[in-house]
Amino acid sequence: MLYSEKVMDHFTNPRNVGEIEDANGVGEVGNAKCGDIMKMYLKIENGVIEDVKFKTFGCGAAIATSSMATEMIKGKTVDEALKLTNSAVVEALEGLPPVKIHCSVLAEQAIKTALADYYTRQGIDPTPFVGELKDPDEEHLACEM
């Protein structure tokens, strides 16, 4: 398994690790059986992601993609964060081994799930914004990707 220097940097020194106590958007995806769980905490004010933290159980790529994804949405608007794709995370990490691409999918899903939670808490149906979110725990997304 060869990881890029960028992946190793984000694995060794992950950015934005932890929890946000007064988060107003929280999303968790993945499952323990597959060996990957990502949990994202968002603090959104006036449509801007003021703070983001994550906790991840998973391999080096899972931790690195979580870290990179949080860095890419921090300070961005909700609309911008919704546009974050897994391939943008992969590109920012200077590539991932093919078997690890699913980690980047998980990171994208984790952010979308946290944003959906944010909309729901605002009393807004998240579906028009984030689409139909699959429940990765049921779909075994991490294992199948």
Partner: peptide
């Protein structure tokens, strides 16, 4: 418990 093996190996390697 609660730890994933590859992340553990990479950390030990460092």
């Amino acid at each position: 418990e609660g730890v994933e093996g590859e992340a553990l190996l990479l950390t030990l390697d460092a």
